[in-house]
Amino acid sequence: MKELDITTMRHGTDLIKRGFSKMQKGGVIMDVTTAEQAKIAEKSGAVAVMALERVPADIRAHGGVARMADPTIIKQILDTVSIPVMAKARIGHFVEAQALEALGVDMIDESEVLTPADPFYHIDKRCFTIPFVCGCRNLGEATRRIWEGAAMIRTKGEAGTGNIIEAIRHQRMVTRMITTLKTMPTLKIQKLAEEYSQSYITSYKTLTNQPVDDKTLLFGSSTYGTMKKEISDILKEIKHLQRLPVVNFAAGGIATPADAAIMMQLGSDGVFVGSGIFKSKNPEKRAKAIVEAVAHYDEADIIAEVSRNLGDAMLGIEISSIPKEQLLQERGW
């Protein structure tokens, strides 16, 4: 740390958090479990790495409770690469998030890939200096996470399957709803904001058995009245921008360069690749190919070229063969 005049510096503002996410735009973020893999990811052109103990496919196979990775692994990865390092905390587990922030990770993924820790609340991400990314299946989830302070949104997809169908479903759900907002009158937007606030009301009622009015504290230091107003403001901003006000990545099932490119053509700002790289035959070649495919997502000749001779992709799982209670995307609300 250099000697600085720190009196006028402001850290952890929305601008800083969202600005960080914007720097990842057009890039690929790769799951890694060792310093060696992190080095390969960086060399292949990843814009960031996600430090994990196990990739989603192995979490799925291993079963049991999946938690934040061992700080030793995260630290080794932090020390090895110069690109940003992200790490996952369980949904609602704000202490895992505090620990990750203390370790020096650049962004936290509050992730359904790990076993959720809190049945009522996601993390109040506004309390942190470093930015968060969160998964979503639809605009309601995306809006709630943004309201809670997420600086980046990603599709949930279905992690660890190598099957793109759920990521496409979630991307299309969000896009479709944003288009619907275009012609939605203000009164209806306010109604939608109330609808999107329901899950907080449900949690409150389950915990207290009390009715909710505008003054009720529903999440962190926010009352129901403020929440409705702020969620409605976010929806108006989305209506105006015709996109989410934060960067929106694709995740959950991306296995090939074409998978990555289709998500970009459907409107994603970048992609996360989890099991897809290091569960394939030739991780380095595949990693490079996916980076190229994302950078040139609308150039079919380049996609065709980089897709050649990559060796076997991860085998993949048909979604309907997964019992409903094992679907990771059902986690979070």
Partner: peptide, 14 residues
């Protein structure tokens, strides 16, 4: 590169 440190040290100032 990354002279101020990691994302925690990112900041705004005049």
């Amino acid at each position: 590169r990354n002279a101020f440190g990691r994302q925690k040290e990112s900041h705004e100032r005049s």
